[in-house]
């Protein structure tokens, strides 16, 4: 019970996010209308993704310092969760964009070209491609220790390259996406006070859920690799 308080907090926060997110009052903006409630889901996916990727890199650094295979398993499991969150972020983004950006007079594919060039989409695509490459790299090495070491090096190198790009690309490519200069919705003035009541708890809730899911996967992987881990 002592160690599961954050799981309870996660459930409570997410129930509040869904119920409060759908029922509590939101400002009526001409372009967004009720789709504004997607903020509680779409933006949180992105934030949880970046948090989880950061945790993955921290584990990779720790692996290189300690050479403990547990760290490597954690790094790869956190990366997996991050990829899932990124795909969910795309899914919620597609729903949002189809109501706000897509031109209803044209068929859907006609809007595709202009939407895909969005810097935020490019940034997420880069992050996802990096981690897909990370998994390909992992699966192409059979030796456990070598796999862990090489993929940790790639994880750190790629992450360090990803961050300047997320900062650079929005300044190169024109965008419809809100929050052109920096991080959308984090700026206090961007989000209405009524929405912040749900938004901040939602970020924490979704991030906790991501950590929870990962911790289960990590435990499962520890059991699967028991023979390897105990040999060390």
């Amino acid at each position: 019970m002592k160690r599961s308080w954050w799981k309870i907090a996660c459930v409570v926060l997410l129930v509040y996010t869904v119920v409060g997110g759908l029922l509590l009052p939101v400002p009526a903006l001409r372009q967004l209308q009720e789709t504004i409630r997607n903020l509680y889901f779409h933006v949180c996916m992105w934030m949880a993704m970046m948090t989880v990727f950061t945790v993955s890199v921290v584990n990779s650094i720790k692996y290189l310092r300690q050479l403990d295979l547990r760290r490597d398993i954690q790094a790869s499991e956190y990366a997996t969760t991050g990829v899932v969150l990124g795909l969910l972020g795309y899914a919620t983004g597609i729903i949002w964009a189809s109501y706000t950006w897509a031109d209803p007079n044209n068929p859907a594919y006609a809007s595709f070209g202009s939407i895909v060039r969005e810097p935020k989409l490019i940034g997420t695509a880069m992050a996802l491609l990096i981690y897909f490459a990370y998994f390909v790299l992992r699966s192409s090495i059979t030796d456990m220790d070598k796999k862990a070491r090489v993929s940790a090096v790639y994880n750190i190198f790629a992450y360090a390259m990803l961050f300047p790009s997320i900062w650079i690309i929005p300044r190169l490519v024109p965008s419809l996406h809100p929050g052109q200069e920096g991080n959308p919705a984090l700026n206090v003035n961007d989000v209405d006070a009524r929405m912040r009541l749900v938004f901040y708890p939602a970020i924490i809730g979704w991030t906790l859920l991501a950590v929870w899911i990962t911790s289960l996967n990590v435990r499962l992987a520890f059991i699967k690799e028991k023979n390897w881990l105990n040999a060390h």
Partner: peptide, 27 residues
């Protein structure tokens, strides 16, 4: 250097590199 530690090195290098090179190329 990273790819040389794995199998299928040449194609792997392209996969590893493309996402990292996008911002530089755009710039």
């Amino acid at each position: 250097a990273i790819a040389s530690k794995a199998q299928q090195q040449a194609s792997l290098m392209a996969i590893l590199g493309f996402p990292l090179i996008i911002p530089q190329l755009l710039l």
